[in-house]
Amino acid sequence: MEDERRPVLGGNSDWMSRLPEELLDVPLWNLALPGSHDTMSFCLDISSPVLRSESFILRLTDLLFPCCTRPCVYRWATTQQSILADQSDLGVRFFDLRIAKKPSSGSNLFFAHGIYTLMTVKEALKDLATWLEAHPKEIVIISCSHFDSMTNEDHVHLVEFILILFNLKLCSSKNVPTLRSCWSRGQQVIISYENEAMLLEHPELWKAIPYWYADSPNPKKVISYLETQKLKGRPDGFYVSGLNLTEDASYVALHPCQTMRKMTTKALPLLLHWTEAQRPGPEPDRINIVCCDFVNVSEFCSIVSGLNTN
């Protein structure tokens, strides 16, 4: 069955370095870049409580019936299946990192989607830094957002860690990043950080990247939403077209045996057919970053990166 296919790993680990000469001076926001939605949700901790930012009803249900609530949240909140290095090998160049402070976790920060992850932020980013050392011509965009229950002190420590870890590999928001300009400076990392105080203090950080998100479990409605947004014209700079589907309480109740992966796998042929017809560039109707769930179960990354040379 399609849902049981083995992950398609590897093959696109150095696709940026193989792009033709005429694309080397194009701003990265005018290229097509594959991204993973809720990048770190592959390692959700089924024993953790639901996030404090979730609805009162969900938190109350979790308090009273955790043995029922958490497995359900896990099934629907898991949207990826591998670590950052594996996703990078697939060709992913945009990472959607939703960061949170887990209760009773000390100074450690984790990722979250409904519930918290097992892997810490530092562990994940160190893994990516190691991958970048082995692929010096590949450039990644890291979107840090949500920051559930984080304090100002947490932000200061996280940004300090990021600046030290990536150091000279960081591309400043004051520059227009192209492949050639980044290669000449040894820059490989663009950090988007959704916190105004940190942006004002650190010019290395980029503002939050707009994410077009249909909020629907229906792939036809997702495509219709994206087409409507395209008619309005693309934002300046980086932006994301989200192929990811979204369930709500009624959908979950009506589909008790389904999971996010089953729902996504069924919708992928239609979503990828739409993607194949897109083109990158500065024109109003062009795409830039395209994000998807379960990036390893289809040719999603190859399709998106291939749009650059069509």
Rank of each mutant, 00 (worst) to 15 (best):
L28D: 02
D14M: 11
V73D: 01
C291H: 03
V8F: 13
S48W: 02
H146R: 14
V189P: 00
G186W: 05
F95D: 03
P71W: 10
L33I: 15
L9N: 12
E276A: 09
I191Q: 00
R5D: 14
A208K: 14
V297A: 09
R286D: 08
W212S: 05
R5E: 11
P282Q: 08
G91R: 02
D45N: 09
P219V: 08
L31Q: 03
V73Y: 00
L179Y: 02
A124V: 08
T69Y: 01
L60K: 12
G11F: 05
L270N: 07
A129M: 08
V156F: 04
P49S: 10
P235Y: 05
V252L: 06
A32P: 01
I139M: 03
R5M: 11
A277M: 11
N218F: 10
I191V: 15
A214R: 03
V50E: 00
G281R: 06
Q81V: 13
S149R: 10
Q187P: 01
D148P: 08
D148S: 09
V290A: 02
D14Q: 14
W76R: 02
P7H: 14
P71L: 09
A32L: 07
I223D: 02
F294L: 06
W15K: 03
R286Q: 14
L84W: 03
V50Q: 00
L125Y: 05
W131S: 01
L44C: 04
I141P: 00
C72Q: 12
N175A: 11
P27G: 03
T39H: 01
N30W: 07
S48G: 04
F65W: 15
E196N: 13
S41Y: 03
S305A: 12
E204Y: 07
K174G: 09
F166W: 06
L231R: 15
P219G: 02
T61I: 14
S149I: 10
M119K: 12
P34R: 07
S82Y: 10
A214P: 03
P284H: 03
C301M: 06
G35T: 13
L199Y: 02
G237Y: 04
E54P: 01
M119S: 15
L132G: 07
P203R: 08
T275M: 05
L163F: 05
W206F: 06
T309F: 04
Q81C: 09
A129C: 10
Q81H: 13
P71R: 09
T246L: 05
Y211R: 14
I303S: 00
S53I: 11
S181C: 08
S107P: 13
P27M: 04
F238W: 05
S105V: 10
A208W: 11
I142V: 10
Q258E: 15
R5T: 15
F95M: 08
L125P: 01
I139C: 01
L125D: 02
I287N: 01
V121F: 01
